[in-house]
Design a protein around this nucleic acid. Structure first.
Length: 437
DNA sequence: TCTGGGGTCCTAGGACCC
DNA sequence: TCTGGGGTCCTAGGACCC
């Protein structure tokens, strides 16, 4: 049984998965040659390891551990703050390289991509393996970072391949060899199978990916829901997840959360955090031309339990001025005095295009138009002078707290924004808005 | 992993209707 | 008022990903 190949029924696809090695740390080493060969970690600003170079990993530093522990494990470790702008540039260039080989490139995350190579052997006059090796070499030559690649019949199998040999690995999994790669892979390592499902599968006596793949369809349908039935198919070499090349242009929901330590019982402070979340979420929604039908407000208690409430909106909107009342209402229903909270969050959901908004009989068109103008100006100001040049009064207590805590900012830049923002604000006579201090 | 922030999709079960 | 069957819509919450 162990040595029996998996029977393939589908038309052979060639899907490549690329995963950059220790991406953030590698980018740093690529820009700063003096860091090459040294243990480097990023995430300094958060106090935890966001990414560790292979040199750091070799010394026992793992992701998500505290900076203090990392220093203890390896005193010579070089800790850097995460520089997302730079990593994004590397990311963009990496995807550009991939598109030279195939138009079907899915930008799965900042450091991962799927590429559909099906049919490209003829075009490039070489095997998929050589094609993948060329991609790998090009990325390393042009960007100075290494990537690991897997190529197989489905996305899930390509993922198995890219993880199989890291860093700088290249693993091709043809249909006849699938069983060799799944035999030693425990189910919780499969993309899409988390701790819950793997515990459930273990209970059914399934420990390895191969044991799972070998189950018959009736068994899988009987015990598991659709997403896992699909994974089962993918493991058997049946491609069910397409490679989607279209970039993400819209959202189902937009959320903003913020953790603060220590947890707070201060109602004004907690509500101010929430207001800021709401403003940020609205800014993003407007940037994508979206309006929300639903607003979800939630708080996380000190013990990590969440309490939330969902509010239906009388009309779709992405304007804080319209959302503060619902926000307040929701907040009042879930906030309990004396309970310490560590996080606030806001979700704008049931998003739809903001134009063609249906106006009900109760809407006041003049009022709506006025608000649209105000926020258009706010967005313009923010684009020019930086985010939060203009802020709602309700969000101010977070700023006061920050100053109180001694948080530093670029005072000069802030002053400029303040004055320019204020002049404009006065000229326009913005009503419920306050310029940030 | 004792816990950061941002997402997606699926399902069960209740409400309501005929 | 009860019983039975069947459909749709919505919501809460689960599970997973990077």
């Amino acid at each position: 049984m162990q040595d029996q190949p998996i029977t393939i029924r589908s038309w052979p696809q060639a899907i490549l998965h690329l995963d950059a090695d220790a991406f953030f740390a590698s980018c740093e080493q690529a820009i700063h040659p003096e860091l090459r060969g040294k243990p480097v970690i990023t995430g300094k600003e958060r106090g935890i390891v966001a990414a560790a170079s292979y040199e750091a990993k070799a010394r026992g530093i793992k992701r998500a551990i505290g900076l203090v522990d990392a220093k203890k494990i390896c005193p010579e470790v070089i800790a850097l703050p995460s520089d997302y702008e730079t990593y994004s540039l590397f990311s963009v260039r990496m995807f550009e390289i991939l598109r030279r080989f195939s138009p079907d490139v899915e930008e799965y995350s900042i450091d991962e991509a799927f590429v559909d190579l099906t049919g490209l052997r003829r075009k490039f006059h070489c095997s998929y393996e050589i094609l993948a090796a060329k991609i790998q070499e090009t990325v390393e030559k042009e960007l100075g970072i290494t990537v690991s690649i897997g190529v197989s019949l489905s996305k899930v199998l390509a993922k198995v391949g890219s993880k199989f040999n890291k860093p700088n690995g290249l693993t091709i999994i043809p249909g006849r060899d699938i069983h060799r790669y799944l035999g030693k892979l425990s189910v919780d390592k499969i993309w899409g199978i988390g701790p819950n499902t793997s515990a459930f599968l273990n209970k059914l006596g399934i420990r390895t990916a191969l044991e799972f793949a070998r189950k018959d369809m009736d068994f899988v349908k009987k015990h598991l829901s659709k997403p896992f039935q699909e994974i089962w198919g993918e493991l058997n070499g049946i491609s069910v997840y397409p490679v989607t090349a279209e970039p993400k242009s819209s959202y189902q929901s937009i959320s903003k959360t913020k953790t603060f330590t220590p947890p707070s019982t201060d109602e004004r402070f907690v509500f101010a955090q929430l207001s800021k979340n709401l403003e940020n979420a609205c800014i993003k929604a407007r940037r994508y031309g979206l309006a929300a039908r639903k607003l979800i407000v939630f708080l996380r208690k000190k013990d990590f339990r969440n309490i939330g409430i969902e509010l239906k909106l009388s009309r779709p909107t992405a304007y804080p001025a319209e959302l503060f009342d619902p926000l307040r209402k929701g907040f009042d229903q879930i906030f309990q005095a004396g309970i310490p909270y560590r996080l606030t969050g806001v979700v704008l959901s049931d998003l739809g295009p903001e134009n063609r908004i249906q106006q009900t009989l109760f809407d006041d068109p003049a009022k709506i138009e006025k608000m649209e103008k105000i926020y258009h100006t706010v967005d313009e100001l923010s684009a020019k002078y930086g985010k939060h040049t203009v802020q709602h009064a309700a969000s101010l207590p977070t700023k006061l707290q920050m100053q109180h805590e001694g948080a530093r900012g670029d005072i000069a830049a802030r002053k400029t924004a303040l004055f320019q923002g204020e002049n404009k604000r006065q000229r326009l006579g913005l009503p419920m808005l306050h310029v940030k201090v």
